[in-house]
Design a protein around this nucleic acid. Structure first.
Lengths: 370, 370
DNA sequence: GTGAAAGCGCTAACAT
DNA sequence: ATGTTAGCGCTTTCAC
């Protein structure tokens, strides 16, 4: 007589008491007569009359399932409202379904928006997003990130400026075979990620100011570690040249992307013997600082001095006067960076470097030369 | 002859190829002669000469381990840089080590800060935080949250205003046995969470304005669904009474916590036959809108009208003139709410309702009555 | 105070 | 095209 093969398949009593007295899978009710809190892949398989593995194949879009079976399984999944247990997938599988976004400055409006975009992309493909603050100038950044990647079994990382330009880090990630995607990387060679043509945007902005009659146009530079600072400076210089304005080096001053740095830089500019009539700050926060400094001297914007920024963060609409700035689609950039990364991770085509469009937002902080 | 018991314990060849050619546990090297990417609890146990379960006890601060053993295991954990695999813990255990923060408005500065605070608390205790956007006026909010809680096996939730005042939701969470913690709940009875004495803060603010000579002080109310709107209105009325000022109902206007609502409300106030000389807006965004509306009419702050807000979000420092406001320690509030929740979850004492202090931030947007 | 064995719910490898 | 089996790394139960 053959061994009792049916018995071997019979589910044993579960170890833990089932917690919730809620929705219940018919398959489980039939089997156990007990209420339970969660439908499992086994229940779906039983209900659809296939093996667990077939259900797994359908769930993961793997080949070798007939269309009919696929449809039947999908219907049961839907009816039972089955969702795979994330931890079980991670533990059993090769993937962690986890990507991290590496960033330096934790509380900027810019990164916040980028984060939301990356989250959009991840959620759509049932990946999780982990936020990983990294001090970009720390000496051990490479080993810190390596520990994180290994510890959390990351499937990939999204890199934000300026971390995205750390050559040693990129090399190590490549060695580890961890896919990565860059947001606004300084160099575009062989990259996956997303960029904006910032230089052209600034050229347009300078043309706008020149069109208003301004000749003495100052620039407050961004933080030197960021590629954006470089592009925005390049656009400023190019824009001046195209407008036939000779650049006065005294009108180009250092900044660091913060409100305070914009405030101080503007004070220096206004104390010049021949001060500017317009200021292009490398981001909105510094532009806000510029407006603060100008107003504090009893001058007014744009009557005495025009001011413009870059990024179009919420503050641009909320200060008085509202800020002329360059809008980059920050959230969309996060989403696209996430999408390209997931392409690489899931091996569904090569990720690439996507260029997204900017828009000039003309508001009240720029006006005719006094 | 006894069965080959040693054989039974001998590790079998692992199913997956080990990915990373990096750090290696001595125990594993000895056992397998292969490099591997990760130390496991088994390696720690072998190295410390105890069972897996004992290591597990030490890791989870469970009783029934001698101090000597505990120390020895801790040392090995440290030396091997062992970290438990999160998914394995979740899958095997009863807990998910996951809490969610439920919120309505995804992009407010306020919630952003709260989030960072909750994250502080969670990370310190190796819990994960999940962000859960919930439209607070959706009809099916209870079932939505229920699905989330069951699906993700949440160990607990942090509730933010105004969701934290949804009685049906709270009742359901109690039924499910899910611990929750409230940030600024409307009613304080039997709650776990954190509150600020907002009413007293506003009373002080009104006293500040009255001290500057203002008698016609307007109030732009917050969104009616939020308890905060109620307290801030109550503080306004109480503050007026204490200053011996009779309340003019025409000076109390509706708002919704947004910049635009503050802007519009202020336009209405300034068109009054006898307009106010000071405006207390129920939050900073509306105060920024008030300043915008005042400036747009060619008036100046605080020379013609004083303005003050509530929250001390970053915009308060970044607008001109800088905003007099009430500072609530938002991030700390998030942290404390998280801490109290984790107390409940981990059964280490009862969570309670913590009151945190506010501070008046006097800046440039308030001045003497014109 | 400590350990052995049995799963948690899923997927990889290898049948068929 | 589909099923079977053996784990993933940890915690639980229960025996000692």
């Amino acid at each position: 007589m053959a061994p009792q093969r049916d018995d071997a398949r019979k589910p044993v009593a579960p170890r833990h008491a089932r917690p919730a007295p809620l929705a219940e899978s018919p398959a489980v009710q039939r089997r156990t007569g007990r209420p339970m809190g969660r439908v499992r892949i086994e229940d779906v398989a039983a209900e659809a009359g296939v093996s667990m593995k077939t259900v797994s194949r359908v769930l993961n879009d793997e080949p070798n399932v007939s269309d009919a079976t696929r449809e039947r399984v999908r219907a049961v999944v839907e009816r039972l409202q089955y969702r795979p247990h994330p931890s079980a997938r991670v533990l059993a599988g090769r993937r962690s379904y986890l990507v991290a976004m590496l960033y330096d400055n934790p509380s900027s409006n810019y990164l916040m928006e980028v984060e939301l975009g990356v989250l959009d992309a991840c959620q759509a493909q049932h990946y999780n997003l982990m936020l990983a603050p990294v001090t970009y100038d720390a000496k051990d950044i490479v080993s810190k990130v390596e520990a994180l990647v290994l510890q959390s079994r990351l499937d990939g990382v999204v890199l934000t400026p300026p971390i995205t330009d750390d050559a040693a880090l990129l090399a190590r990630l490549d060695e580890l075979g961890i896919p990565w995607s860059s947001i606004s990387p300084r160099e575009a060679n062989r990259r996956v990620g997303v960029v904006v043509d910032e230089c052209s945007a600034v050229v347009e902005m300078i043309a706008h100011l020149a069109g208003l009659g301004h000749r003495r146009i100052a620039h407050i530079k961004g933080h030197p570690a960021h590629g954006a600072s470089e592009w925005r400076l390049a656009g400023y210089l190019d824009g001046l040249a195209r407008a036939g304005i000779e650049c006065d080096p005294a009108l180009v001053v250092d900044g660091g992307f913060s409100y305070d740095s914009g405030f101080e830089a503007t004070n220096r500019l206004l104390e010049l013997p021949d001060p500017p009539t317009a200021i292009f700050a490398a981001n909105d926060d510094m532009a806000a600082g510029a407006i603060g400094a100008i107003c504090e001297r009893g001058l007014s914007v744009p009557r005495h001095v025009s001011v413009c920024g870059f990024d179009d963060t919420p503050i641009a609409r909320h200060i008085y006067p509202s800020l002329t700035t360059v809008r980059q689609p920050t959230r969309e950039m996060g989403r696209l960076a996430g999408l390209e990364l997931l392409k690489e991770i899931r091996g569904q085509g090569q990720g690439g470097l996507v260029t997204v469009p900017y828009t000039l937002q003309l508001r009240r902080s720029t006006g005719p030369r006094p």
